[in-house]
Design a protein around this nucleic acid. Structure first.
Lengths: 145, 145
DNA sequence: CTGTAATAGTTGGTTTTGTAACTAACAAGC
DNA sequence: GCTTGTTAGTTACAAAACCAACTATTACAG
């Protein structure tokens, strides 16, 4: 074909950005309004709530977050008494992070909201399609290069 | 089920963000390195290249960008002589934006890259699946409330 | 040991973004 | 024609992101 029918709206990175932004908005409002959290704080909270005691680097590796983001998110969560740190005995550079009871409560609350929200986003979509969509997104997310 | 198998990696907004970030990275590098552009500048450039002479608000409405973002992107693109503005004769609040020849050249270059990049991202995926994916993302992007 | 490199995490300074207030121009009611 | 409201676009200030340099600790080579 001589003329391309390429359009920004068909460009995958653009579509992904638009979809990500739109679908994050509402949920973002919840953790922001209810707990004054930022996205990275919510992510750190989630990881600790989900997988228990972890180090900052472990969270970073799993979530694909840079260590400065983790560092600042942890500081905020600590100030809000949602987590505590303790130094590793063997390697004193490392600190282990654990949610406090109120951190766990916040996590439980937000996770429930997230779960319902996720279902609402996919409402009306056949379960197979939803699974396929998530698998494709997972593939795109893992891609490097 | 008593225990939920909910996981951050299955949470649609998270997945979308990860996929969007991963898939934007490489292309972002191109317009950044080659033309020193930011994402919003690329978007404005794209709209003008694709649809010709437009006003800032028209771009904002189509791209879902806030007017301050447009304003700043336009200022940058103008400074780089990628576009020119001219006031509307009838309504002197409005300004029409047009790409200069070098703006058009940058657009042509970047569009070609984007097109190839998009194809590479979807490589190996049956065309039907790719179309379905894009349609779903479009739906999620349009969703409000 | 000692010097060099690597890793965990923090901090500082610059960009970018977000939000809200602002100017300028038009529109409509009276 | 004035007042009030609306729209186009800009600007100012605060919040957040980004990147690079930093401290402290461990690892490892000679």
């Amino acid at each position: 074909m001589g003329v391309s029918d390429f359009d920004l709206e068909k460009f995958l990175p653009y579509l992904l950005n638009q979809a990500a932004e739109a679908s994050s908005l509402e949920f973002q409002q919840v953790y922001k309004d209810r707990y004054g959290m930022l996205r990275n704080e919510w992510r750190v909270l989630f990881h600790l709530g989900m997988y228990g005691r972890m180090t900052a680097s472990a969270i970073g590796a799993r979530a694909g977050l840079h260590k400065t983001k983790i560092s600042r998110a942890v500081a905020k969560l600590e100030a809000r008494r949602f987590l505590t740190r303790d130094r590793d005995g063997k390697d004193r550079r490392v600190e282990h992070l654990t949610l406090t009871p109120s951190g766990q409560a916040a996590f439980a609350d937000l996770r429930a909201v997230a779960e319902r929200y996720d279902a609402a986003l996919l409402e009306g979509l056949p379960p197979q399609d939803a699974a396929r969509l998530k698998a494709l997104l997972h593939m795109l997310a893992r891609r490097r290069g």
